[in-house]
Design a binder for these strands. Structure first.
Length: 114
DNA sequence: GGTGTGACAACAA
DNA sequence: TTTGTTGCCACAC
């Protein structure tokens, strides 16, 4: 049985988000087997080693808003990456109804690797 | 091992 | 809609 720390699970889960789609913190926590731990997701993303290539910018708040205050360097960077993948960002927000990732059985199966 | 903290979420005004 | 409050719980001190 593969044993991963909560953070590692979170990173791996974030890496499952398809290009052009986004997920919320709560969604990632849930998929990572850590329901209700949305805040841990945020914290963990701040500790991601750059060599893991985790697409942290595909993770948004439950409202679709980018986690950083509008105008900050981080928020602009995130917006840039998202738009580069075809995700429309308006006023620091994304229309989840159109771009939120909907995991299919394939990903759920992958998840069993935990 | 008590306390404060956080890239959140849900709910009340 | 926007802002404030509360619940949440792993983590760093």
């Amino acid at each position: 049985m593969l044993v991963l720390s909560s953070q590692q699970k979170i990173w791996k889960t974030v890496q499952l988000i398809p290009k052009g789609k986004v997920a919320t913190y709560g969604q990632i926590a849930d998929l990572a087997g850590l329901p209700g731990r949305a805040r841990l997701v945020g914290k963990s993303l701040g500790n991601v080693p750059s060599e893991l290539h985790v697409p942290w910018y595909r993770v948004l708040r439950s409202t679709g808003q980018i986690a950083f205050p509008a105008g900050t360097e981080q928020s602009r960077t995130q917006t840039g990456y998202l738009q580069q993948e075809g995700v429309a960002v308006f006023n620091n927000k994304v229309k989840l109804k159109s771009f939120q990732w909907q995991p299919d059985l394939g990903e759920l199966l992958w998840k069993l690797e935990f």
